[in-house]
């Protein structure tokens, strides 16, 4: 179990959130490439996030390199009341080792990986999901959170 790297980032309303704010709580911190990417996969058409159910078990915080303004617009457009943190210089994304080379049609570029971390009330990363496949992700987190909470 390693300590979760600290962060101090603005949410969509401009309010600062730091890791310490979540001390004593379970936290699901997830990194995603970009706001405003609703779309369809074979399995589902969605925002690729099913945060509402998880919020019953833990605080849920999303981080991307989008600006505060982009997060604000995104959450207004889709009536989201989730906390979305803005990490424009991707320093927190990097601290969580989630800033990675990606490849598309032979071209390489750097971008945010879809990674999720469960952080326990002591501020330790107790579970990480790397290269998240969004389709069953919410169910998986709910199951793991339930188990983790029962043994904490």
């Amino acid at each position: 179990m390693k300590l979760a790297p600290n962060f101090n980032l603005q949410d969509q309303t401009g309010k600062l959130h730091k890791l310490d704010d979540y001390k004593g709580k379970w936290l699901v911190l997830y990194f995603y490439p970009k706001d405003d990417t609703p779309g369809c996969t074979k399995e589902a058409c969605n925002f690729r996030d099913a945060r509402a159910d998880i919020e019953k078990l833990a605080a849920v915080v999303g981080v991307s390199k989008d600006s505060v303004a982009s997060h604000k617009k995104f959450s207004e457009k889709y009536h989201l009341n989730f906390t979305l943190l803005s990490d424009p210089d991707h320093s927190v994304i990097e601290a969580y080792d989630s800033w990675k080379p990606k490849k598309f049609m032979g071209k390489e570029y750097l971008g945010t990986s879809r990674n999720t971390f469960i952080i326990n009330p002591d501020g330790k990363i107790v579970k990480e999901y790397l290269g998240v496949d969004p389709k069953n992700h919410a169910d998986e987190i709910i199951k793991d959170l339930t188990d983790l909470r029962s043994t904490f």
Binding site: P33, K34, D36, T37, P38, G39, R48, K73, K77, F104, M105, K107
Partner: peptide, 14 residues
């Protein structure tokens, strides 16, 4: 899924 010039973009952009 979009490719704008050489920039990929996943999902529906505003």
């Amino acid at each position: 899924y979009f490719i704008i010039g050489n920039q990929p973009y996943e999902g529906l952009p505003s």
